[in-house]
Amino acid sequence: MKYSFMALLLFLPACTLFKRPPRPVHASREESARVEIPLAMPDKGHQVIGGAMVRAIQLAMDDYLPWDRTLPDDAPPLYQCLSRREAYDVAAAPGPEGVMFVSIIPNPEICDVGGPPILDVGATYAIDVVGWRILSVQQ
């Protein structure tokens, strides 16, 4: 019993090293009350994305821009912009059996900081949608 307690005291501080992904932020009740969710989705802009494609996109994005990635405080504005997921567009398409291709492409309208065009950013992933592994990455 004494050794179990000692082991617990030694390993408990190590638990702080394991971070869980952040949970999404929810609006206040007052703000939520101002938004009415329609019974049917609007026709304009309506898209249906299959679950396998959503999961493949999430897997690629989690690899490309990990949620716990931090930038130095003195990072240039372009790097700050490119560290945000909303700065990218995503194209996805089914490949051969069990493979999904996911391209992560910077949107030049989002990160326009007045410099030359962004050419060396983005990646294309081959995702195994059976075992949920990254098969290959082309940057």
Rank of each mutant, 00 (worst) to 15 (best):
Met1Arg: 05
Lys2Trp: 07
Lys2Val: 13
Tyr3Phe: 14
Tyr3Ile: 14
Ser4His: 02
Met6Ala: 15
Leu9Thr: 06
Leu9Gly: 14
Leu10Tyr: 08
Leu10Glu: 03
Leu10Trp: 11
Phe11Asp: 02
Phe11Ala: 09
Ala14Asp: 04
Ala14Val: 11
Ala14Trp: 11
Cys15Ile: 09
Cys15Ala: 13
Thr16His: 10
Thr16Cys: 08
Leu17Gly: 11
Phe18Thr: 06
Lys19Gln: 14
Pro22Cys: 05
Arg23Tyr: 08
His26Glu: 15
His26Phe: 11
Ser28Ile: 04
Arg29Leu: 09
Arg29Tyr: 04
Glu30Ile: 06
Glu30Gln: 10
Ala33Asp: 06
Glu36Trp: 06
Ile37Ala: 07
Ile37Lys: 04
Pro38Asn: 03
Pro38His: 01
Pro38Trp: 01
Leu39Phe: 10
Leu39His: 05
Ala40Gln: 11
Met41Tyr: 08
Gly45Glu: 09
Gly45Met: 13
Gly45Ala: 12
His46Gln: 15
Gln47Thr: 12
Val48Arg: 09
Ile49Ser: 04
Gly50Cys: 07
Gly51Ser: 13
Gly51Arg: 12
Ala52His: 10
Met53Glu: 11
Val54Tyr: 12
Val54Ile: 12
Val54Cys: 10
Val54Arg: 14
Ala56Asn: 05
Gln58His: 08
Gln58Ser: 06
Leu59Asp: 00
Tyr64Ala: 01
Leu65Asp: 02
Leu65Gln: 02
Pro66Leu: 00
Trp67Gln: 02
Arg69Val: 00
Arg69Gly: 00
Arg69Lys: 13
Thr70Lys: 15
Thr70Asp: 05
Thr70Ser: 12
Pro72Glu: 10
Pro72Gln: 08
Pro72Ala: 03
Asp73Ala: 15
Asp74Cys: 00
Ala75Leu: 04
Pro76Thr: 05
Pro76Asp: 15
Pro77Ser: 06
Pro77Val: 14
Leu78Asp: 02
Gln80Pro: 00
Gln80Ala: 09
Gln80Asp: 07
Cys81Arg: 03
Leu82Phe: 04
Ser83Cys: 07
Arg84Ala: 00
Arg85Ile: 01
Arg85Thr: 06
Arg85Lys: 14
Ala87Met: 04
Tyr88Asp: 09
Tyr88Asn: 05
Tyr88Gly: 01
Asp89Thr: 03
Val90Tyr: 07
Ala92Phe: 10
Pro94Gln: 11
Gly95Phe: 03
Gly95Trp: 09
Glu97Gln: 15
Glu97Cys: 02
Gly98Met: 01
Val99Ile: 15
Val99Pro: 00
Met100Lys: 07
Met100Ala: 15
Val102Leu: 05
Ser103Cys: 07
Ser103Asn: 05
Ser103Gln: 14
Ile104His: 00
Ile105Cys: 03
Asn107Phe: 02
Asn107Thr: 03
Pro108Asn: 05
Pro108Cys: 03
Pro108Val: 02
Pro108Phe: 03
Glu109Gly: 07
Cys111Glu: 05
Asp112Gly: 04
Val113Pro: 00
Val113Gly: 00
Pro116Lys: 11
Pro117Cys: 08
Ile118Lys: 06
Leu119His: 09
Leu119Pro: 01
Asp120Leu: 13
Val121Ala: 13
Val121Ile: 13
Gly122Asp: 13
Gly122Glu: 08
Ala123Cys: 10
Ala123Phe: 14
Tyr125Phe: 14
Tyr125Val: 02
Ala126Arg: 11
Ile127Val: 15
Asp128Tyr: 05
Asp128Arg: 06
Asp128Phe: 07
Val130Ile: 15
Gly131Pro: 00
Trp132Glu: 11
Arg133Cys: 03
Leu135Lys: 10
Leu135Met: 13
Ser136Thr: 10
Gln138Pro: 01
Gln139Tyr: 14
